[in-house]
């Protein structure tokens, strides 16, 4: 029988030998609720103020939703993947090709995009065991470039230069503004779901093992952790999550091109979200995503065609001005420290 017990600060659910507890004390949920409410209200206000901001919010959610699994992957493998955009490409192209050639709906292409991203991650998963330090950085950096080459070589299939178009849209509510708002809510929902998953994983026993691997692989191995299994599982899981964002972008924009997402410049943007927000801090990824997306939009409006130059300059300054390794979220955590969060370590 399922036994539900309501305590002062939590609900405890017991079933046979297993136990789950869910924190209900307001102080644990207050900030989360405030921020979620802000996310829900923002598209509505933006709709009346400046509809373009809704699109910026979608971009921010996309950046954050890519950076969150990247953080998870970084903690669980103890290595920094410099090519997360490879899985954006896999997810996006699977969704685009299936939608265009087989007429599949977005809800049918989603599981296949996830499966293909996970399969590709499985194929490349030996990298997290064989390569470390600079070799790992390099090999992961090259993977999206390799994929980009493939999209150019087999341009008849991938249309690497101009991109695939005619992908079925995720929503068609009868107006561009309404579609934007729906996309804003769906992208926010995906981002929040990723945040919840990552948070739960990092706080679980599995998360503790990941943190142990991140701190010292050899010691973790010494205390009986199956480090290879944990690293591979984390790598595949996080890659599949990144693949979801490829799927989302393909069906949101209705077009998908490798030249947009696979070059180093897009990867650099994700890396900056990851770094400015606070490396390997999943909540920092949200702060970083919103900061980078809105800064980009602000600079476009203020500086016009000089924005591509000013944007990296400002981010470079921030990279060195913000507390080392802590980023924007680190500034917040200095005042509101709660519990241990794993910090990444790069090995040479």
């Amino acid at each position: 029988m399922v036994d539900v017990e309501i305590k002062r600060d939590r609900i405890v659910i017991r079933w046979r030998e297993k136990k789950w507890d869910w924190m209900i004390e307001p102080r644990y949920w207050r900030n989360t609720m405030y921020w979620t409410l802000a996310l829900i209200l923002f598209p509505v206000f933006a709709y009346f103020l400046s509809p373009g901001l809704v699109n910026t919010m979608v971009s921010a959610n996309i950046y954050a939703a890519i950076a969150i699994p990247l953080s998870l992957m970084t903690v669980g493998t103890g290595r920094i993947n410099f090519g997360p955009n490879f899985y954006i490409g896999v997810g996006g192209y699977v969704a685009a090709l299936l939608s265009i050639h087989l007429g599949m709906s977005p809800w049918l292409t989603l599981p296949l995009a996830v499966l293909m991203s996970a399969f590709c991650a499985l194929v490349f998963s030996p990298l997290v065991i064989m390569a470390k330090g600079l070799y790992y950085v390099l090999l992961t950096l090259l993977l999206p470039l390799l994929f980009l080459e493939v999209t150019f070589i087999w341009t008849g299939i991938f249309k690497g230069d101009v991109g695939l178009f005619g992908i079925e849209l995720l929503f068609d509510l009868g107006g561009a503004k309404l579609n934007f708002i729906a996309a804003a809510y769906v992208s926010a929902a995906i981002m929040l779901l990723f945040l919840l998953i990552a948070n739960k994983v990092l706080k679980s026993r599995y998360g503790l093992i990941m943190a142990a691997i991140n701190d010292d692989e050899e010691v973790a191995h010494g205390i009986g952790v199956n480090i290879n299994l944990v690293k591979i599982l984390t790598f595949i899981g996080a890659s599949a999550m990144i693949g979801v964002m490829g799927w989302f972008m393909a069906h949101y924009f209705g077009t998908f091109s490798g030249i947009t997402y696979l070059p180093l410049t897009y990867m650099l943007k994700i890396l900056l979200v990851f770094m400015v927000g606070g490396r390997a801090q999943i909540f920092g990824c949200v702060a970083g995503g919103y900061f980078v997306a809105f800064l980009e939009e602000f600079l476009i409006r203020v500086m016009g065609d000089f924005q591509p130059v000013a944007f990296p300059i400002i981010l470079l300054i921030l990279l060195f001005v913000l507390p080392r390794g802590e980023g924007l979220f680190g500034l917040y955590r200095r005042r509101h420290y709660r519990e241990y969060m794993p910090q990444i370590h790069v090995r040479r």
Binding site: L268, P312, F320
Partner: peptide, 19 residues
């Protein structure tokens, strides 16, 4: 702090290219 260094260096290359 290799991660910051690699990212910073990449940004420098991007700035020069964009400029």
């Amino acid at each position: 702090d290799e991660m910051t260094l690699l990212t910073g260096l990449l940004i420098v290359a991007l700035i020069v290219e964009q400029f």
